[in-house]
Design a protein around this nucleic acid. Structure first.
Ligand code: FES
Ligand code: FES
Lengths: 141, 141
DNA sequence: ATAAACCCGACTAAAATAGTCAAGTATCAT
DNA sequence: ATGATACTTGACTATTTTAGTCGGGTTTAT
């Protein structure tokens, strides 16, 4: 069970962005350099973040990205959802009555995995970008 | 972020085993049929469970596996550890001062991922095999 | 003896990940 | 105006991981 770079980088990049946000748009080039993430890869990620209206783009020289919502309104859940970093503890569909790989009924441990999924998601639901930035600034005092 | 079949099947198989355990050894063939998991794959999984002393094998006809510990002593953590289903929220080593892919320092969000990892592991630490079996029996009354 | 069961290492197809690459378009500074 | 900067988009790909399979053992009850 591992977190992919897509989710990790998305959050990393947004924390970086959020710290400089209120001044000027932040270019991906800067984020790339500061955080050591490939520029091309960041572009992919920000495309998704923009489509989900988490960030807004400003084109041209001196352009970049700014947050489209307040930092406290952006939860980790929203970020992960935007970049398709999803928690999957099972293979079977949630709605379906059938079990994994088409079995007629759900397995012995199905409820456990649901519970696990909720447990993990609850972590993402309560953390906001603002929390992360604050937390970070405190440590640098 | 997804749970792999190795971890999922290990728990599933052990719950199955635990339910029949006190009578006779349970053969992988039976588990395979009941749970719809490939026999060859189960053998791989049980090899690891045996090496970590979670189950004990009984060879020969009428053989199979039995739990080596009490069901309440076997936590999900132990099972996952045995089959190498590990939670990895980061790529960088825990001990090292350096960050991901050899960067000289840990990233902005490093603490967050540590926290996440702990949050997930706490779930695994508190659930025992006994809990799962009981929970299951209750629902079938 | 033989069948049921565990034991073990090696192999592999398919999927997912973590990017790269190429060819744009918009906007600002000068 | 024009170049440089920065976003936009789609396609492509190497590597790694996953989810097994396969083959050939050994042990033991009957
Ligand atoms: S996890 Fe899919 S049926 Fe149990
Ligand atoms: S997660 Fe590895 S350095 Fe932050």
């Amino acid at each position: 069970m591992k977190l992919t770079t897509k989710g990790r980088y998305a959050v990393m990049a947004l924390v970086d962005l959020a710290r400089f946000d209120n001044v000027n748009p932040v270019s991906l080039r800067d984020i790339s350099l500061r955080q050591g993430i490939s520029l091309d890869y960041l572009e992919q990620i920000f495309l998704k973040l923009r489509k989900k209206e988490i960030v807004q783009s400003i084109r041209g020289t001196q352009g970049g990205y700014v947050l489209k919502k307040k930092a406290h309104e952006i939860k980790l859940t929203n970020i992960f959802e935007a970049v398709d970093e999803k928690i999957k503890t099972v293979q079977c569909k949630k709605e379906s009555k059938r079990g994994c790989n088409g079995k007629p009924t759900k397995c012995l441990t199905h409820d456990l995995w649901d519970e696990l999924e909720n447990h993990i998601n609850s972590f993402f639901k309560e953390k906001s970008l603002e929390d992360l930035v604050k937390n970070n600034n405190e440590k640098r005092i």
